[in-house]
């Protein structure tokens, strides 16, 4: 690892630690990392949007036409329509003409709803309904088939669970009596599902955390400071740079603690 790579890796490590410092409380280091992250990502987004959105979907498709004719002599002149709709969005900068921007927005939302409705009906209603119409394996259900008795019950659980969860989402009937009972079973089923999802996702997050710790230890500590002879290039300048950064960190922590003590004394 050369010195410039060391500096950049150390900066990434510093930012990681700065974000982790939020676990203690909001502080200037976190604020610095947050503002840097937001600023860089906003700038990056503009470039990405131009190169991945505007350029391939609009400019390149009109590129065989001429600006002098407003690209109307292009082979695919109809691409000018979304271009104009996009330009209309800029009318928001004028108070007088801001209403014009409602047209592209209305078209966008209208098209999206039109596309979404049949898709939702197909994927979230009909396909789910057909999937719940499963034959029950009575052999397993009665315990006379394979040893896996639970597989016999699973179809019954899926059907009753789906039906009762749907009943919970009935809004035009009060949840009392039989409906209330079924809805209660439905919410239990939902909560069981949520519990499983929660555990699964938390496991994923822990793997993300492990990845960060791995970065700090392997990419930064080991490589930068020649732990176990991994990076023979590491010299005193690396340690010096690290010490400076570490001193800033420690100094800040000491300052915070002192501030806390002073506050306590004044109180």
């Amino acid at each position: 690892m050369d010195f410039s790579t060391f500096l950049w890796t150390s900066f990434a490590a510093f930012l990681t630690l700065a974000i982790f410092s939020f676990l203690y409380k909001d502080n200037p280091l976190y604020k610095f990392a947050e503002h840097l992250f937001v600023g860089v990502s906003a700038g990056y987004f503009v470039v990405i949007l131009f190169h991945n959105g505007l350029s391939p979907n609009l400019l390149q498709r009109l590129s065989d036409g001429d600006w002098y004719y407003l690209w109307l002599n292009s082979l695919r002149p109809w691409y000018i329509i979304p271009g104009i709709l996009g330009i209309l969005m800029f009318s928001r900068f004028s108070k007088k003409w801001a209403w014009v921007s409602r047209y592209p927005m209305a078209i966008y939302i209208g098209i999206a709803a039109g596309v979404a409705i049949p898709l939702e009906m197909t994927n979230r209603v009909l396909r789910q309904m057909v999937a719940s119409m499963t034959p029950i394996n009575w052999g397993n259900f009665l315990g006379s088939g394979y040893l896996d008795i639970a597989s016999g019950y699973s179809e019954v659980i899926i059907l009753t669970g789906a039906v009762s969860a749907l009943v919970y989402f009935f809004f035009s009937t009060p949840h009392r009596g039989a409906i209330g009972g079924i809805a209660k079973y439905g919410i239990w089923i939902l909560m069981l599902g949520f519990g499983a999802t929660f555990g699964f996702t938390v496991m994923n997050r822990i793997s993300l955390f492990a990845n960060r710790i791995q970065f700090l230890w392997v990419n930064w500590m080991k490589n930068a400071f020649n732990v176990k002879g991994v990076n023979p290039q590491a010299d005193t300048s690396y340690m010096l740079a690290f010490t400076v950064v570490a001193l800033i960190f420690v100094g800040y922590v000491v300052w915070e603690i002192m501030k806390k003590f002073r506050k306590a004394e004044t109180a």
Binding site: V125, L159, L166, F170
Partner: peptide
């Protein structure tokens, strides 16, 4: 209307499960 659609889905799912069985 959504509630009625849900009721229809419930009835059809139960009927379908019975029919398939």
């Amino acid at each position: 209307a959504q509630d009625y659609a849900k009721a229809a889905v419930i009835i059809l799912a139960i009927l379908g499960a019975i029919a398939v069985n």
